Each structure stands twice: as C-alpha cells, then as structure tokens.
Simulated assay, not measured.
Amino acid sequence: MTLSADLRAFEGRIGHRFTRPELLRQAVTHGSVATPGRTDNQRLEFLGDRVLGLVMAEALLAADPEATEGQLAPRFNALVRKETCAEVAREVGLGDVLKLGRSEMISGGRRKMALLGDGMEAVIAAVYLDAGHAAARDLVLRLWGARIGRVEADARDAKTALQEWAQARRMPPPAYAEVAREGPDHAPRFTIEARLADGRAARAEAGSKRQAEQAAAQALLAELEETRQP
C-alpha cells in the first residue's frame, strides 16, 4: 500500500523514503485513533527514545573528546528531552500528518508538546526499523544538527542550576508553587513561583508546569546574578 500525498511530502521534509511505508503510518498514528487493524505509535516511541539517546551520546562524545560525564550529561538531557523533540517535530511539520481521534483534534492535539515529542521519537524508530541504525543516525544528526553544535559546554537546566546554587550556600532546595492557571483546558497557561528559603523568589508563565518551573528558576537565577548576593 502506497503512502498518501501528505505522508509522501513528509518523507521529503525528513529526508527519508520508506521501503516499508506501514512503519511511517504507524509512527504517525496516535492511540486516540488506533483500532485492532491500526496499531498506534507507542511501541515505536519506546524504541525511538532509545535510538535517539544512543545517537546523541555518540555525537556528543565525538564532538568533545575531553568532556567529562558531568559535562556531557546536561548536554545530552537538553538534546533528548521531550521539548526538543517537539521543536524538531514542528520544524518538519509532523503535526500536520498525525492521525488523531476526534477528541484530540478538538483539543489541539496537533500542537501539543507531548504528542509531537512522542511522534518524533516514533518516526526515528520507524526509520531505524526501515533502514537500520545508520539511516536513523543520519536522520537525527540532520534534524538536530544545529542544536548539537550550539549546545552549551556547561549546559544545565535552570532548576538544577538553582538547586546547586542553594546547596552551595547550605540552603534547602528551592520550592516551586503554582500561583495561577488560566486559559482553556487544551491551551492552559501556568504561573509558577520559584522561592528560596531566604525569601527571594521569581515568577514565570508558560504552557506547561514544567516549562513554567524552568522559566521561574531561570528568572530567579538572573536576579541572583544581578544582585550578586552571597
């Protein structure tokens, strides 16, 4: 069975022509539309996450032979996290070809970070099963290439950096509290406050609690840098 025109166009955007088109169809099929004759992409997502991790680990080791494990780990996490997968998915238009149930369609599923991230991992697995590790590696390096090159040598997520700042000063870990939630269920906006034990705090807003926590931590780190208080 041949692929539809939209999936053929998607093949062009990711740079891989499938010899087993059923793998791509499975990779873009969400559980909300799965049937006994149509398998969803959850198993492929599981495999794709591991393939992505291996490719990124190899790429980071090759890019910086002198880096320690402590330096490599945060770079790795920044490149394989769900948010990054979703960013790549948006760039190649994966949301346009996802097969979703009516409820997911209505709730904006084509724009949801989790669905896009999962779908991108499933596509990686589909390429791996279709053509092997080399093809999957080439796909990942092609789509992630610029990100790999610019990931900071000491990249750490803001929450980790803020916790380390507090620990170095013998303070308890920062606390995070949801202070507001606005918007409809399919597109919520969360306001999170990051607070240190000494009372210093900062707030930030984002479309998910995780993103808002990271943004709040980053805002508080920026304030600490400005004041340079011990």
Rank of each mutant, 00 (worst) to 15 (best):
I14S: 07
M113L: 13
V51D: 04
T29V: 06
A131Q: 08
V80F: 02
A62K: 05
M105L: 15
R102W: 13
V51E: 10
V80K: 08
A67T: 13
E66I: 03
L79K: 11
D64H: 13
A62L: 04
N77G: 05
L47A: 14
L116Q: 09
L98H: 00
G101D: 01
D118H: 01
R43F: 01
L139H: 06
A126S: 09
G108D: 02
P74H: 09
R43M: 03
G101V: 07
G109V: 10
A27K: 11
G15N: 08
R13M: 05
V88M: 13
A67M: 08
K112Y: 04
T84L: 06
D130V: 00
L116M: 01
K99A: 14
T84A: 11
A67R: 03
S32Y: 08
E87K: 12
R50H: 12
L7G: 08
R137E: 15
L47T: 14
H16V: 02
A126T: 00
L115I: 04
L61D: 14
L52D: 03
A73R: 10
H16Y: 06
R75D: 03
A86K: 10
A73F: 06
F10Q: 03
H30C: 14
E45I: 00
T29D: 01
F76N: 05
L79V: 04
A86I: 01
V123M: 10
A134N: 05
L79N: 05
L94G: 05
R110H: 14
T29C: 13
R25F: 01
L60E: 03
V88C: 05
G53E: 10
L60K: 01
A125Q: 07
V127D: 10
R13F: 04
L44W: 07
E58S: 05
G93N: 03
A134V: 06
G119V: 07
S103M: 06
P36S: 01
L116E: 13
L100A: 07
